[in-house]
Amino acid sequence: MQMRNLLIASSAAFFLASAAHSEPSVKLGIGRTATEAEIAGWNIDVDRTGTNLPPGKGSVGLGREVFDQQCAACHGSKGEGGVGDKLVGGQGTLATPNPVKTVGSYWPYATTLFDYIRRAMPHPSPQSLSNEEVYAVTAYVLHLNGLLPDNAALDAKTLPAIRMPNRDNFVGDPRPDVK
């Protein structure tokens, strides 16, 4: 809250300062209107409520096939990690000297998993999976973490409904915290 107030105060100061520096307050007419198609092709953001999740559905079973072919080489056949991040396990370790941060132990929102796989994975060929495959791999990784049964499938409605175990363990920024 303190930071927010600081930001609000500083942005108010900016508007005063900008008037003094005679920045134009009228629009300059630079750029053109982006079309809906242009925006739709690039807007791949999925927020924690599932806004903008695409149509389609993917099963744990399909996810296992895709994962074995496209993900296991880096993340391990059961998501145990390798050159890529460990994806599975670690629940109960966050408050120990050796915390293991995985999708199951640490990630607060399952929707983030879909968003990240779609935009950035697999590492050698991001944005190459179909939406169904992204739903499926998301489902499989959640299954490996014990968060979905073997016969489950995910879509735009069921994915945001998954409650991740660590969801309520994120707090705001209290700094300065060292006096």
């Binding site: 927020d47 924690r48 966050l94 968003d115 990240y116 363990n169 994120f170 705001g172 209290p174």
Partner: peptide
């Protein structure tokens, strides 16, 4: 948006298991 880079990374884990975002 709670992207991967502001949830699983770039959050600061504390001794009690909570994490600052």
């Amino acid at each position: 948006v709670y992207s991967r880079e502001e949830t699983s990374k770039y959050t600061d884990l504390l001794p009690d298991g909570k994490a600052r975002e």
